[in-house]
Structures are given as structure tokens and as C-alpha cells.
Design a protein around this nucleic acid. Structure first.
Length: 409
RNA sequence: GUAGCCGUAGCUCAAUUGGUAGAGCCCCGCAUUGUGGUUGCGGUUGUUGUGGGUUCGAGUCCCAUCGGUUACCCCA
């Protein structure tokens, strides 16, 4: 029917039976993260807008995609577009850096970005992610990646590609950026129109260019790897060694750079091999300076975030049949309180029931019960009839005999 | 932000060069079947996304708007 109201552009309802897929993913995330003793964190849907502007950049492109408004007191508020900044805010505000010197957190949440919707990209979207605070050590990078891989494995997503890189610290990055700028400037005439614009705005983005004419230039571009310090190289090699030891395949991708300033060191991304431009399932890396920049103590950190919508596109999980144990028919007003007592007993004993509160006639209820895959039907009247819908046998029992009767079936 | 395609019953879709809007599925009821998954009969639902325009006449053409979709830009 034509609805008077419709959902906001770029949002979607998650309806049954598809809800089951979401529940499956969420419970997998909970169980894997908890196996690694990561603890769940939940933060408000909205934050002060500076939390994001200051930390993910004032640059127009990114910040204009936030949902921002002024509340009645004139305060600028934003729906959260990502989770790293809120987690860091909570981490500092709650003093977790003292309580948990090594602090391992995970989340599952909805985020909001005012982008043009397309496949795998909505205005309200869902991610899960993990963040570990308090150590610079390479084994923490590897554990984070292992968790990501393990969750995907538990979800039967195996045709993925792990790309990994080390982008150095902010010094290295700015040196690299100017080197890149010089290099691309020297080849400016062969660059695509698009990349000429990128050259002014964000030269590192050229490395991601899809334009054909850019590819050779990109191949021969200077690599950030060559600018890394000795420690950074050692750290990177150590991470790779851990991954090898775990049997996790990876591709070093020297062109994998993250858009935000706060990243440093290890960066990685897990992509699918399926077609489509939105093929990144999961992205993460180190952000050793963010906690301090946000007013906390110097605290190294590493984490990742993964998009649930895109994972669902990959998971293609079959929906299970919706099994009901017992279909309850209680059509006579006189016996409804008896019916409720029986229902309560059944629930207390772990049965899954469907109570037909719509009072159809018994014949249609039988059809309904069969269609719903119920194993038993209990018709409550003056007598109580328990019917085994598989064997088609039925028996009249007293209220006290129901549980025993069911157990013997 | 830019561009292409699309928008008909709850769902999937049909409607020949513009001529009064249809099918299957689902749902509901009745009957029937070896008184339960069969089969038959009947029934509900649409101002063809919305608003304008052209025309004697528009689902079909034009404009706008909203929404969807795909790609680009961007991507925390």
C-alpha cells in the first residue's frame, strides 16, 4: 500500500526474516571478540561536532558528509560518522588508560554519513570494529588482523584479500607527500584530468586512481617504504612475520594509504574479490598519536572497522526455517486463563510457542500450524488436545500431563 | 556534488504506433481431498511515486520533484 510516510533517503529497514542474518553476524562478532577478551563499548549516537572535525579533518569533502545540526541551545551536534573518535573520547573521559593499561575494546553500531547512496553504501550503515590501546608492539597489530580474519572465517567469507602497508609517522608522511608531489608534477602532462585536480588537493589519492593513463606513472612512483625509519621497517617486518606464522596470506600494497591524518605505521584493508567498486570489507591500522592529540596521555593504538552491509552481500547465508515447537489454539473465552497458564508452563520449560490470538476456527488453525512448521499443536477447550503434527496422532490430556506427554514424543 | 537507467496491486512483472489497467504468487473465505501440506471456486488491494504540461484522450510523450539503482567524485 502507498504509505503516507517513507524512510529517509539512504536508510533501510531490516525486516524479518533477514533479521536473522544480522543476528548471526552480530553474535559471531560478540563471540569471537570475547574469545580474545575484547570488551564491548557503546557510545551515544551523537557527539559534539568538533570531536570529528578536529580529528578526522576539517577538509570540506569529509566533514560535509556528516549529519550536523544546531540544537536548541546553539550547540553543534553530529550523528557519529565513525567510531574511532568516540571510542578514544570515552577512553580518555573514563580514565581507562589507568584502569586498563592494555585496553581492548570492540563495538557494533550504526553510523551516519550524508553520502549519495549506492551499492554497499548507505546513509545509515552498520559497522563493527575493535580497538586496542596501550601498546606499540607488532603482536597487537597481528592480533587485530587475526580477529578480523577469524570473524570473516566464522562467517564463511574466504575469498578475501588482505592488503597491508606501513605508512610511517606523520613526518615520514609529509616527506613522502612532497616527494610524490614533485614526482607527479614532473609527469603532470601524462596524468588524467582527474588526477591533475587530485595533485592539488590530495596527491596521495592519485595512487588509488582508476584512470588507465595514470597506471604506468603510479607504478613507477616513489614508495613510502623507502622513507621508513629503521624501527618502522622492523615493526612492519615483525607484523608480517606474525602473519606468516599464523598462516594468514597477505599482499604488501605500497600504495595503500589511509585518508586521515591520524593514521600511522601499519595500515591494512581486507577486500573481496567480487566485482563492484565498494569492495572493501574491512579497514584498519595504527593511530599512535590520536589519544594524545585528543587530550589523553601518549597512548599508541591500533584497530579496524568492518562494514556489515558489505559483509552481508558476501555472506549469502541461507535463512533457516522458522521452527515453532508448539502452536496454541484457545478459541473459547472461558478457557483463556487456563490457556495462559499452560503457555507460561511451556515457556518456563523451554518450548517455543506460537499463540494464535486471532481465534480462527480450529480447521484453519491446523492448516496454519502445519504451514508454520510447528511440531505440536495444543487445542485448549474444556478438554486439552495435544496433537503431534508429524505423526498426526492426538490425545486428550489433563493440564498436569502436558509436559510429561510432550517429553515422551 | 556529476551522469545513465528505473518507479504499474503486499511481492515478481505484463499492457502492441498515446485509446477506459491485467497475470502469477501471497493473503482471506468456502468447498473438496483418504476430516492436515492436494485440488477447485470465490474475494480484497491500485486516483499507474507525486505535481504540472502537451493532447479529444497519457501508465505510455515533455518538465519538475521525491525515491530506487549503477558508475564517477569522495571514502573516517
Amino acid at each position: 500500500m502507498k504509505s503516507k510516510y517513507q524512510k529517509i533517503k539512504g536508510t533501510f529497514d531490516i525486516l524479518p526474516p533477514e533479521t536473522e542474518v544480522w543476528q548471526h553476524i552480530e553474535s559471531t562478532v560478540h563471540s569471537v571478540c570475547q574469545q580474545f577478551s575484547f570488551q564491548e563499548i557503546r557510545t551515544p549516537a551523537m557527539e559534539s561536532v568538533d570531536l570529528f572535525k578536529r580529528n578526522i579533518g576539517d577538509e570540506t569533502d569529509v566533514s560535509k558528509e556528516m549529519f550536523v545540526w544546531e540544537d536548541q541551545s546553539g550547540k553543534e551536534i553530529s550523528l557519529k560518522p565513525e567510531m574511532t573518535a568516540p571510542v578514544v573520547r570515552a577512553y580518555i573521559e573514563s580514565g581507562f588508560f589507568r584502569k586498563y593499561p592494555l585496553c581492548k575494546l570492540y563495538y557494533i553500531d550504526s553510523f551516519f554519513r550524508r553520502e549519495k547512496p549506492q551499492k554497499g553504501r548507505q546513509r545509515q550503515f552498520n559497522q563493527f570494529g575493535v580497538e586496542a590501546f596501550g601498546t606499540k608492539n607488532s603482536e597487537q597489530d597481528a592480533e587485530i588482523i587475526l580477529i578480523a580474519k577469524q570473524i570473516l572465517k566464522k562467517l564463511d567469507i574466504n575469498n578475501t584479500n588482505l592488503m597491508i602497508n606501513n605508512i610511517g609517522d606523520s613526518n615520514t608522511r609529509s616527506k613522502y607527500e612532497s616527494k610524490l608531489k614533485t614526482y607527479f608534477n614532473d609527469h603532470k602532462n601524462s596524468l588524467s584530468e582527474l588526477s591533475k585536480i587530485r595533485l592539488e588537493k590530495n596527491p596521495m589519492r592519485i595512487l588509488d586512481s582508476k584512470e588507465k593513463e595514470d597506471q604506468t606513472i603510479i607504478e613507477n612512483a616513489p614508495l613510502i617504504r623507502d622513507l621508513l625509519s629503521k624501527e618502522e621497517k622492523e615493526h612492519f617486518n615483525a607484523v608480517l612475520k606474525h602473519l606468516k606464522g599464523l598462516g594468514i596470506d597477505y599482499n604488501e600494497n605500497p600504495h595503500l594509504v589511509r585518508g586521515l591524518d591520524y593514521y600511522n605505521g601499519t595500515t591494512f584493508e581486507i577486500t573481496t574479490q567480487s566485482e563492484g567498486s565498494q569492495n572493501a570489507l574491512c579497514g584498519g591500522g595504527r593511530y599512535d598519536s590520536l589519544v594524545q592529540k585528543m587530550g589523553g596521555p601518549e597512548t599508541p593504538a591500533v584497530g579496524f572497522a568492518a562494514g556489515i552491509e558489505r559483509i552481508i552481500l558476501e555472506a549469502k547465508q541461507e535463512l533457516g526455517e522458522n521452527h515453532i515447537d508448539i502452536y496454541i489454539s484457545c478459541n473459547d473465552e472461558k478457557y483463556i486463563s487456563k490457556g495462559f497458564n499452560i503457555i507460561y508452563d511451556l515457556i518456563e520449560n523451554g518450548y517455543k510457542i506460537f499463540f494464535d490470538t486471532n481465534k480462527k476456527n480450529i480447521k484453519n488453525q491446523i492448516k496454519d500450524a502445519v504451514k508454520s512448521n510447528a511440531k505440536f499443536m495444543i487445542a485448549i477447550n474444556e478438554t486439552i488436545t495435544v496433537k503431534n503434527l508429524l505423526s498426526k496422532k492426538e490425545k486428550n490430556v489433563s493440564e498436569g500431563e502436558i509436559l510429561a506427554f510432550l517429553k515422551n514424543q
